[in-house]
Design a protein around this nucleic acid. Structure first.
Lengths: 301, 301
DNA sequence: GGGGCCGCACAACCGATCGTTGTGGCAGTC
DNA sequence: GACTGCCACAACGATCGGTTGTGCGGCCCC
C-alpha cells in the first residue's frame, strides 16, 4: 500500500523505489501483486513512467486513509506522543458518556478509552504512566503521592424495576423502604470499588444486595427484571440511555437520602500531556459535586 | 491486524484461530510479531485465555479503524458496490468545489473524485461504466446514445491580472477591449475541450491566447502574472479560492458579452447507482444555466 | 525514420517469513 | 495431586518477497 502511494506520488516506479530503499523491480512486483489482489489495473504504464488509471485515482485517497489509520494505530501505543488515554469504570456507564461529550467538544483531541479492573489498578496505571486519567470512586486522602483527584460529579442512584414490581408505581422510595427487598446486581466483581460502594450502601441501610450469579450482560439482566415482581437493581441516573428496549422498566428515584456515586477524575501531577488539562477543565467546570444535604456517600469518599 | 482483532473479540487464541481457519500457534506467532513490532504487550496471557492489556485496549479501536479503511479501499475499486465515482476537469476548479458541497450536503454518500484527460475520455469512461458522472463541457447533440447531460451551471470567465497591468484598475472589460492584449494560459492541453473553448473564444473576438510553455502549476503562473504589466489570464469566477496569497492580483469582470464556461453533468442512462440521482438532483436544482442575453458560449455548447 | 535511452516487466535465485505439527509449561479445577 | 485447558517454543516445509540480470516497448532526438 505504501509502495502504491509512493509510486502514485512520484509518477515513476524507480523514484518510488529510491524513496523506499528497494529496487524498481520490487516496486513493480508489489504493485502487480496489489493489482492482482484487487482485480483491477491501478497504473497505466507508459514510456515516461506510470500514470494512475481511473481505478487508481479512486483508490489513492483510500490508500492514504489506510496509511493514516496505521500511523494513528501505531501512535496509540507509542510512549511519548500518544493520544490521551482515559480509564472508565465501564464503557456503557456514565463516565464513558462524559468522555464522549468531551470528545465532541474537542474533536481535535485524540482519545483512547480503556477499562481497567478497579480503582486500584487505575491508580497503579496512572502511577506508571500507562493511562493518563481515570474516572473512579476513590478513598480520598489515601491516594498515593503524586496522584491528584477532582470530584468530577456525583451520580444519583435510582432503582430499576419491572412493570410488575411492587414498587413499580412509586414515584420515589427511601433507602429505608428498600429493606427486605431483593436487589440484584450481577456483574459487580468482588474486590472492586463498585463492590465496596454497594457493600457500604447495603450496610448503611440494612439492605440486601445479591451479587451472586454470573454476569451475562445487560440484556439478560433487563429481561429478568422485566418479568420479576420482586427483583430490583440499582442503576445510575445517567446510565443506560443506550440500552435496548426497556420493556416497561421503571426508574424510581431514591431520596431521603439519595445515594450518589462519587465519580472522581484521577491524574498524575507529573503528567504534562496537554490534553489532560483540557479534560480536567472540561469536567470540573461541567458540574460540581452534589454531595451535601439529602445525599449519601460512603464514609471513605 | 485482523488476527489481533479476532483474538481480542474472542478472548481466546484458539477461537480466533478457528475463525481465521489457521492454527492456534499461528495466531500466537502473529500476535507476538505484532507485539514485537509495536514494542508493547497487547495481551495478558492467562490460563483462561488472553485478555487485552491497557495498550491492547487502546490499540483495538485503531485496529478496527484500519480494517474498515481497508474494506473501504477495496470497495472503492470493486465493480458493483462501489462509491459514486465522479470525474471533474480539475481538482482545484469549480466543479470539484461543487462535488465537495454535495459531499457536505450528503455525508452518507461515498464519493470518489477522479480527473480524466478530457471530455472524450470522460464520455468513454461513462460508456464503459468506469465512472458514474462527469462535469464537462460537451457538444450537445453529439453525445453518444445512452449518455445524458444536464447543463449544471455556467461559470462566468474573469480576467486575472497583476497590480501593474494596464487593465488593473478597470472595473470591467469587454472582449473587444482585450484584442491585442497578451492572454497567457499555460496548462491548456491541446485537444481537450478546454482548448476548444478558449480557441473558439479567441476566434470569436479576435483575441490572442498563448498556450505555449510548459505548465509548472498555479504558483509560478500567479508569480509571473503579478510581476507582468502586459500578461493576463482567464480564470473562472468560482475558481481559485484555495490559491496561495494573491500578491495583489486583480479579478476583472468581462461583460458585453460575458463568456461563460458551460459545465454539464454527464451520466449514463443505464446507470442505476442510487447516489447518481442524488447528485443530479443536487446540481440541477442548485443553479440553472446563465446562458442567454449578455453571455457568450461556443456554438457547440 | 532509426538508433539510443528510459522505464517497466519477466526470469531465476536466495533468504526470510509464515504456517504447520509436535511438545512443553503454567494455572486453575475437580 | 492428577487432569484439563490454553498459550509458547521448536523444527520443518512451502510460500513469499527482494535482488540481480535481462528483455521489450515507447519517446526523443539526431
Amino acid at each position: 500500500m505504501r509502495t502504491f502511494v509512493a509510486a502514485a506520488d512520484m509518477g515513476r516506479f524507480q523514484d518510488a523505489a529510491d524513496e523506499l530503499a528497494i529496487t524498481q523491480q520490487a516496486v513493480s512486483k508489489r504493485v502487480a501483486a496489489l493489482e492482482r489482489a484487487l482485480g483491477v489495473r491501478l497504473f497505466a504504464r507508459t514510456a515516461r513512467g506510470a500514470k494512475l488509471t481511473v481505478d487508481g485515482q479512486a483508490f489513492l485517497p483510500h490508500a492514504r486513509d489506510l496509511l493514516r489509520a496505521e500511523e494513528r494505530a501505531v501512535d496509540s501505543v507509542r510512549p511519548g506522543r500518544r493520544a490521551l488515554r482515559v480509564d472508565v469504570i465501564g464503557r456503557r456507564l456514565a463516565p464513558a458518556d462524559l468522555v464522549r461529550d468531551f470528545h465532541r467538544a474537542h474533536p481535535g483531541i485524540e482519545l483512547d478509552v480503556v477499562t481497567l479492573f478497579d480503582a486500584d489498578a487505575a491508580i497503579d496505571a496512572i502511577r506508571s504512566g500507562t493511562v493518563d486519567a481515570s474516572f473512579r470512586a476513590v478513598t480520598r486522602g489515601q491516594l498515593p503521592a503524586g496522584i491528584g483527584a477532582d470530584r468530577a460529579f456525583d451520580e444519583p442512584i435510582q432503582l430499576l424495576v419491572g412493570p410488575g414490581h411492587q414498587l413499580a408505581d412509586a414515584s420515589a422510595v427511601t433507602p429505608a423502604e428498600l429493606v427486605g427487598h431483593r436487589i440484584w446486581m450481577p456483574g459487580i466483581v468482588a474486590g472492586t470499588e463498585w463492590a465496596a460502594y454497594y457493600g457500604d450502601l447495603a450496610a448503611a441501610f440494612g439492605l440486601t444486595i445479591e451479587v451472586t450469579g454470573p454476569d451475562f450482560g445487560v440484556k439478560p439482566l433487563l429481561d429478568t427484571l422485566a418479568d420479576s415482581p420482586s427483583l430490583a437493581t440499582f442503576v445510575g441516573e445517567l446510565t443506560g440511555f443506550g440500552w435496548p428496549a426497556d420493556q416497561g422498566l421503571r426508574r424510581i428515584a431514591v431520596k431521603d437520602p439519595t445515594p450518589v456515586y462519587p465519580h472522581s477524575l484521577l491524574w498524575h501531577r507529573d503528567n504534562a500531556h496537554p490534553a489532560l488539562a483540557a479534560l480536567r477543565g472540561h469536567h470540573v467546570s461541567g458540574s460540581g459535586g452534589l454531595s451535601g444535604a439529602g445525599t449519601w456517600t460512603p464514609a471513605w469518599a
